[in-house]
């Protein structure tokens, strides 16, 4: 495992310490093999965080933000759930090295 500090839920303590290798490692813990479609969302989240200094705080807002950027085809919960099982916003932010969405249980 790459030496990087993560909290008890597996989120990076420092978003700037993130690398694509770290993303692959975290994804593999959830048995996710990262495809182009995953990377598109991951890089979108990274950009979103750099611009707004916030992860989309909930799943619904994650879906809204993706919809705003990529349209209905990708900005829907089924598509995002298939890419990032569980709670998509949480899973995706964890892999993207971003803080835990504040309002996700």
């Amino acid at each position: 495992m790459t030496m990087v500090i993560r909290n008890n839920e597996g989120f990076l303590e420092d978003a700037s310490a993130w690398t694509t290798d770290i993303a692959r490692e975290i994804a593999s813990e959830d048995a996710i093999d990262l495809s182009e479609n995953h990377w598109e969302i991951i890089m979108f989240l990274r950009d979103f965080y750099n611009e707004h200094e916030i992860s989309p705080p909930s799943n619904r807002l994650f879906v809204k933000a993706v919809k705003e950027a990529f349209g209905e085809a990708k900005g829907n919960s089924i598509y995002l759930m298939q890419l990032f099982p569980g709670t998509p916003a949480k899973t995706a932010c964890r892999i993207a090295g971003l803080p835990r969405p504040t309002n996700c249980l």
């Binding site: 979103f48 611009e51 707004h52 200094e53 916030i54 989309p56 807002l61 809204k64 933000a65 705003e68």
Partner: peptide, 10 residues
């Protein structure tokens, strides 16, 4: 920067 996301969130 947080506020700049307000319209995206609705």
């Amino acid at each position: 920067r947080n506020l700049a996301a307000a319209s995206i969130f609705g």
